[in-house]
């Protein structure tokens, strides 16, 4: 297919409509929306190296406005987008992952994606040590210092609320109960932008006559 070409030849390839239709079929997006996402993908995947693939540095640049720097959460997001685990994000992987962030995507998918995001070591549980590691990471990212006592108090209250069976790890059922009681925890799993996706919003210089019909 055309996403195999380097750079992907989505614009000219004769299989273009087939590929777009396939992705629209596999996700919540319409063909017009997949087309709009491709414009966004092109910008992201060419911001450092123009090779039609999103490198970790390019995701870092988009989210942090600088190309380098370690960030635990960005690593996890990148890893979940990178379905084939080959260190780059292809267009189809990009569309699949963003589909979960659509306002109309099933809540179950968002809950599951967030669980996998926070299950750092991919053991099937969000362990207390992992949560502590993530809290330390966000405090460092924000330049905030907390005493270990306060940090432990936050951990205690979080696990008192989330860890129903008190085994110091949160399983998927406990996670579901927890986020359904605290829906604001899933706020960043929805991108309102995706609801109104068109070439005009993603790429303002595009005019409506470039759109293809659904």
């Amino acid at each position: 297919g055309c996403f195999e070409c380097r750079p992907p030849c989505l614009q000219n390839c004769e299989n273009r409509f087939e590929e777009i239709a396939r992705l629209a079929n596999e996700t919540i997006f319409t063909v017009n929306e997949v087309e709009a996402l491709y414009e966004l993908f092109k910008k992201l995947s060419s911001s450092i190296i123009d090779d039609g693939l999103i490198q970790k540095e390019e995701l870092h640049l988009a989210l942090f406005k600088t190309p380098s720097g370690e960030n635990l959460f960005l690593d996890r997001v990148f890893d979940l987008f990178d379905e084939k685990k080959n260190g780059v994000i292809k267009f189809d992987e990009f569309v699949h992952a963003l589909s979960v962030f659509h306002p109309n995507a099933p809540m179950e998918e968002k809950i599951d994606f967030a669980f996998r995001l926070y299950d750092l070591r991919q053991t099937g549980f969000i362990e207390r040590e992992e949560v502590k590691q993530m809290v330390i990471a966000i405090l460092m990212e924000s330049g905030i210092t907390l005493s270990d006592d306060l940090l432990e108090a936050i951990m205690d209250s979080t696990f008192a609320d989330a860890d129903a069976d008190k085994d110091d790890r949160i399983n998927i059922e406990e996670w579901k109960d927890f986020v359904l009681r605290n829906p604001n925890l899933l706020k960043n799993m929805t991108l309102p932008y995706l609801k109104d996706l068109s070439l005009a919003t993603v790429f303002p210089s595009f005019t409506s006559n470039t759109r293809i019909e659904d």
Partner: peptide, 25 residues
């Protein structure tokens, strides 16, 4: 006690998890 603070609420504030910035390039 004001420590009803939730660890995941803090974590979800990371820029690394805020994908809306993807649309801001």
């Amino acid at each position: 006690q004001p420590t009803a603070m939730n660890a995941f609420e803090l974590i979800s504030m990371s820029k690394g998890l805020n994908l809306s910035n993807l649309f801001d390039i």
